[in-house]
Design a protein around this nucleic acid. Structure first.
Lengths: 204, 204
DNA sequence: CGATTTAACGACCAATGGGTCTATATATCA
DNA sequence: TGATATATAGACCCATTGGTCGTTAAATCG
C-alpha cells in the first residue's frame, strides 16, 4: 500500500455552490417533466447555474440526469431500508412501505408520478446506463420485499400457499402499477383501500 | 328532422393514401419512441407523407398523436372484449387476458412497452386531452375486469373474501406494473409464473 | 376539352435544442 | 501584494424542432 499522495489543496476560486443541492434540484425538474421535456434553461433556473458552470460541473445533460437518477434511487432504497428494517415486525414494515406509496400517490404527489417509472418507460431499452440502473433498482427492491416476506412467513404471518419470492415480484408490479394509474386518479381513499385489499390476500 | 343535405361529391384530386393506415403507422412510431422523442421526420417516414400532406390531413403533431392514442385504446378494449367475453368461462377469460400481457411483455414486445403507460407517465397531468383518454381507459378496463370477476364470483370460482370491484383495481395495477418492470426484465417464464401466482391468490 | 378543385410536395421559417468558448471575477499561495 | 489558478457568466454556435406556404400535379364535372 503506497500512501495516497496528499490531495493538492484547491487553488483559485473555490466553487460557490452546493453541488449536491444542485443535483437534487435537477432531480426535481427531471422528476416533474421527464428527460426529453426538460430543457437546459429549466435546469439552469433550478440549479441557479449558468450554462458554463453546469457543463463544467456535470459534463452534459445526460450525465446530470444519471446523477439525479442515482440520487432518486438512493433515496428510495434508503427509505425501504428504514420501512422494512429487519428489527421491525415484518408485516408492520410492509404496511408502512405500502402506506408510503399511498401517500406518494395522492393529490399533487400522485400527479407528479415516479421518476423511476417515467424513466423506465421513456428511456429503458435505448440507454444502457439507464437500463442498468433501472434493472438493478427493481432487483434490489424485489430482494428487500422478498426478505421481509420470508421473515413474515417464518413468523407464520403469511397466508397459506404464499411463497415469498413470487409474492415479492407480484408486490413490485403492484406498487409500480399503482404509480401509473395514480397519474390520473389520485384519490387517497381508494388507493388505501386497494392496498389494504391487496395485502389481505397475502397476509394472514 | 330536416333531411340531411346530400353530401356534395368530392371535387378535384382524391386523396391517394389510406388515412387509417397512416394513423396506425404513426401509432407505431409513438409507441416505440414516446411523444417527445418522436420527431416529425420520423412520422413522415412512417406515414410516407410529406410535411404539407401530414399537416393538411391531421392538423399538427399533437392531434395526430391523439388519433394514434385513440386507435391504441380501441385496439386494447376490443381485445379485452374478446378475451373477457361474457359467453366464455370468466376464469378462462381472465387467464387469457393475463396470458396476453405475458406475451406482450416478452422479448422485443416487452422492450417496446405500452403506449398507454408511457403516455400516462410522459403527458398525464399536463395535457388535458391525454388525461381524459387515459383516465377513461383505465376506468373502462377496470369495469371489464370487475365484470368478469363478478361472473366468476357468481360461479363460485373466486377465493374466499375476494370482492370483485377492489380485486379489479388490484388487477389493473398489477398488469400495468408488469408492463413497467417488463421494460427491463422481459423474460417470459418469470412473467408467466408471476401471473400464475397472482391469479392463485384470487381464484379458487 | 377546359375549368375548377384539391391533394401533394418540399423549400422555407422562426424558435429552440444541446453544447462550446472566451472574458472576467475572485479566491489562494508565495 | 503580485502571480496564478479556477469557477462563473453569458454570448455564441449549429443542428434540429414543429409548423407554414407557394407551387405543381392530378382528378372531377360541365
Amino acid at each position: 500500500m503506497n500512501r495516497q499522495t496528499p490531495a493538492p489543496l484547491p487553488r483559485g476560486r473555490p466553487r460557490s455552490f452546493d453541488m449536491d443541492a444542485a443535483v437534487e434540484r435537477a432531480m426535481n425538474v427531471f422528476w416533474s417533466h421527464g428527460y426529453h421535456a426538460t430543457a437546459l434553461p429549466d435546469l439552469l433556473r433550478a440549479t441557479k447555474l449558468s450554462r458554463g458552470s453546469l457543463y463544467a460541473a456535470f459534463g452534459d445533460k445526460h450525465s446530470l440526469f444519471l446523477l439525479a437518477l442515482d440520487r432518486y434511487i438512493a433515496i428510495a432504497l434508503t427509505r425501504m431500508d428504514i420501512e422494512l428494517d429487519p428489527r421491525r415486525e415484518p408485516v408492520d414494515g410492509l404496511r408502512a412501505y405500502l402506506a408510503g406509496y399511498v401517500e406518494r400517490n395522492s393529490g399533487a404527489n400522485g400527479r407528479r408520478g415516479c421518476l423511476l417509472v417515467a424513466t423506465a418507460m421513456e428511456l429503458a431499452g435505448r440507454d444502457a446506463d439507464v437500463d442498468r440502473r433501472i434493472g438493478s433498482f427493481f432487483k434490489a427492491m424485489e430482494a428487500r420485499v422478498a426478505d421481509a416476506l420470508s421473515r413474515a412467513k417464518a413468523a407464520g404471518k403469511l397466508a397459506d400457499g404464499v411463497e415469498p419470492s413470487s409474492a415479492a415480484r407480484i408486490l413490485v408490479c403492484f406498487v409500480e402499477g399503482l404509480r401509473v394509474v395514480g397519474k390520473t386518479a389520485p384519490t387517497r381513499i381508494i388507493s388505501q383501500a386497494t392496498v389494504d385489499a391487496f395485502l389481505d390476500r397475502f397476509i394472514r
